[in-house]
């Protein structure tokens, strides 16, 4: 049954957990990305499960440098390709939220500011899942992680998640979008657009993590969809600074439907945390108002 799955450029036999959202995301990305591409990934889940020596899943050139420097390494690769007169080969970074929101933010900002044609995709599973589900600055408000435990003095993550897409957009990049694995056609279209952009491009990709979120592996796609349907994760697309596309869910669901089935949020459904829940609902409502969803 072995054989080169050339359609994906990302082979099976990798070590991702069953039902891994990041693995689904990378397959969808790589299908759209084609073969004439060089991928850079910082340290993280993806690096760990896809790159063992003598067991790499990558079928395109793939570089894992360090945790905090993938955008700069991609810049160097692009500079070399340009010096060689190679305008065809694309450069893509696929990095987790820890590498993007936290440790690699400076490097990312440098990349987005320069004019190189590099697509950066942040696969966001909302925490340091590979090291044991610690909190990152992508961990949502109220979520329980191993470093935001629940206790008499704590309701979980107490800071609001950064608005990564707006941070990227503030660099005046020509293409910025959000996507999630439940909408593969939408994501693949966005990847193609990002790679065709004359300049840096950015995609924020939500990839649920069954282990870190406390959901069943088979529910990965379901929660990816619920994040969109509750307006907590709107699917949008900006070209040249203009909002050109919004996915409008038919009916916006209350955030409870998304939160209550995830173990990282079960503590929010107690009397004392009702206020936290209301705040999360307000965050979703703010998104609905911003993008004109009917509530």
């Amino acid at each position: 049954m072995e054989g080169k799955d050339r359609k994906n450029n990302f082979a099976p036999g990798h070590n991702a957990c069953p039902g891994c959202g990041a693995a689904i995301g990378v397959r969808q990305i790589m299908r759209a990305a084609g073969e004439n591409i060089i991928v850079v990934s910082p340290t993280g889940c993806l690096e760990t499960f896809s790159s063992p020596y003598g067991g790499s899943a990558w079928e395109v050139p793939w570089v894992h440098p360090l945790f905090e420097n993938a955008p700069a390494v991609a810049t160097g690769i692009k500079a070399a390709l340009k010096h060689q007169g190679n305008e065809e080969t694309r450069v893509l970074v696929i990095g987790g939220d820890g590498a993007t929101y936290d440790i690699g933010m400076g490097s990312l900002s440098g990349m987005l500011e320069r004019e190189d044609e590099i697509l950066y995709i942040c696969y966001d599973n909302e925490g340091y899942m590979n090291t044991g589900i610690q909190r990152s600055s992508a961990t949502p408000y109220g979520a329980k992680t191993s470093t935001t435990p629940i206790g008499v003095c704590s309701f979980g993550e107490s800071c609001r998640k950064k608005d990564l897409l707006e941070i990227a957009r503030a660099h005046h990049i020509k293409y910025a979008a959000s996507g999630t694995i439940a909408y593969p056609q939408d994501l693949m279209k966005k990847v193609k657009k990002g790679l065709a952009t004359k300049g840096p491009a950015f995609i924020h990709l939500l990839t649920p993590c069954s282990l870190g979120w406390g959901i069943e592996p088979e529910a990965t796609i379901e929660f990816s969809k619920l994040a969109v349907e509750t307006a907590l994760f709107p699917l949008v697309e900006y070209e040249n600074g203009e909002l050109v596309n919004i996915f409008i869910p038919k009916k916006i669901k209350p955030v409870d439907e998304y939160l209550k089935k995830q173990k990282r949020y079960t503590h929010l459904f107690s009397k004392e945390n009702a206020g936290v829940l209301a705040e999360i609902q307000e965050m979703a409502d703010a998104n609905s108002r911003k993008y004109g969803f009917r509530q």
């Binding site: 060089i38 850079v40 570089v63 440098p65 360090l66 905090e68 420097n69 955008p71 700069a72 390494v73 991609a74 810049t75 160097g76 690769i77 692009k78 500079a79 070399a80 390709l81 010096h83 060689q84 400076g106 490097s107 900002s109 440098g110 500011e113």
Partner: peptide
Amino acid sequence: ADSEFSAASIVYGSVAAGE
């Protein structure tokens, strides 16, 4: 570069790409 960390990382990338 945006820092020495990035400067070193950029030339890491460009040598990896053969320059």
